[in-house]
Design a protein around this nucleic acid. Structure first.
Length: 410
DNA sequence: GATGCGTGGGA
DNA sequence: TTCCCAAGCAT
């Protein structure tokens, strides 16, 4: 529902466009004024920017353009090359859909230039279809993302919480789209939300839409959009098994199933992840027979919907040891080519850090008393630099290894 | 409509 | 530390 109308004029697209012409952000995927945008770049950037910050996307976007300069090149690339180039960016179904979409577009010969046509492609939903139609083809379409929801909910002081208010927000957003320069308008609203109409401490004094904004008039701008907060997921635990093979200095890896969590990404074998998992029983889940050492500390990682704690086990096997069914040995020098998500990079960094660390003198209590295999007596270094094989990519160059002994109990 | 799906950064 | 969030999509 909309707050009672006061003396507010209707938000004028022209006012926003004046502001945009002066304050628009320069972004790598954004065409210069007067230059026709490249649909491939617009599409690629929009997919990467789904739930992802501009700063995180920039290096990935540049690397993708280098490796896959056109949609035809991307379509012809092997799946694992695409997954590898995406590794670290998150939401990996985007990468699979990206590849599938590229194949469809390459087969069709061009991107569709309407919302309806775009909407049919994998990985393109209501927002992205509107954004591409507007930005790449200057169609009068609304691109309603989180920024626009915030801007519109403030303009009209919408009291209904998200997500129930989404249909209303969309209608209002569509009513604002001008016939002239709809592509610039779509980008202007997002720039406004990203730079002035921010979630916290919006800079209303600089806003071209301050006058018609109802939330601002009431001094309640920061309280919109209304939303219901979600509950955090329950902690899950598990064990991860790092096997180092002598001779070629290789690590045992497998590929996860194509659907679901971390789909199609690589990982060292792990147990199931459950709330009641007992690391003391972990060796029952080990991928092969070996002299397993339970490493001190543990690897923590927080996914969207649950936190995870992995206890890491390390084993060394002889040269020539074959990989178990469905797994492979990858030499450490070749780990860069594996699509390892952040959580699994932490696991490998934790294990290899143990291996490389010189034994410090200070002993330290084991993280948990009842161990199948007692951990090594040495204390792990608090924050050793990442092993070289794991440091790549400017953006995610140093996945922080949060692993420390737990002073359990009390 | 509710869930599942990553990651990194800022307050 | 903890919470929230950032150009959403598929089911």
């Amino acid at each position: 529902m909309v707050a009672p109308a006061a003396s507010h004029s209707r938000p004028d697209a022209a006012d926003l466009l004046v502001w945009y012409d002066r304050h628009r952000r320069a972004l790598p995927w954004r065409a210069l004024p007067g230059v026709a945008p490249d649909p491939y770049r617009v599409w690629l950037s929009e997919i990467m920017l789904q739930q992802t910050t501009v700063a995180a996307v920039k290096p990935y976007f540049a690397r993708f353009l280098e490796r896959f300069p056109t949609v035809e090149v991307l379509a012809a690339a092997p799946e694992e090359a695409v997954m590898g180039a995406w590794a670290g960016l998150g939401y990996y179904s985007r990468a699979r859909n990206l590849h599938a979409c590229a194949k469809a577009v390459a087969a069709a010969g061009a991107f569709p230039d309407t919302v309806e046509g775009l909407r049919k492609l994998p990985g393109i939903g209501a927002y992205t279809a509107g954004a591409i139609a507007a930005i790449a083809f200057d169609r009068p379409a609304a691109a309603v993302d989180g920024n626009v929801e915030r801007v519109v909910s403030r303009l009209y002081a919408i009291e209904t919480p998200i997500p129930a208010s989404r249909p209303e927000i969309r209608r209002l957003a569509e009513s604002l789209v001008p016939a002239s320069r709809p592509g610039d308008f779509a980008q202007a609203v997002m720039d406004l939300g990203a730079t002035l109409c921010t979630p916290k401490r919006p800079a209303c004094a600089l806003c071209p839409w301050m006058q018609p904004c109802r939330a601002r008039a009431e001094g309640l701008q920061e309280t919109f959009p209304r939303k219901v907060k979600k509950v955090a997921g329950a902690l899950r635990r598990g064990a991860a098994f790092v096997v180092l093979r002598a001779g070629d200095d290789a690590v045992l890896l497998r590929t996860r199933p194509p659907e679901g969590l971390l789909g199609s990404m690589a990982e060292p074998p792990t147990s199931e992840w459950r709330a009641d998992y007992d690391p003391a029983q972990a060796l029952l889940d080990a991928p092969l027979d070996a002299r397993w050492k339970r490493l001190p500390g543990l690897v923590r990682h927080v996914f969207t919907h649950f936190p995870l704690e992995l206890t890491v086990f390390l084993a060394r096997v002889g040269a020539g040891t074959p990989a178990p069914e469905g797994m492979r040995f990858t030499p450490r020098a070749a780990l860069d080519a594996e699509p390892l998500p952040g959580a699994m990079k932490k696991v490998l960094a934790h294990a290899l850090e143990q291996k490389l660390a010189a034994p410090p003198p200070a002993p330290k209590p084991p993280p948990e008393p009842d161990l199948a295999t007692p951990p090594e007596p040495e204390a792990p270094p608090r924050r050793a630099p990442l092993p070289k094989v794991l440091s790549r990519r400017p953006a995610s160059a140093a996945p922080v290894v949060k692993a420390r002994g737990r002073p359990k109990g009390s």
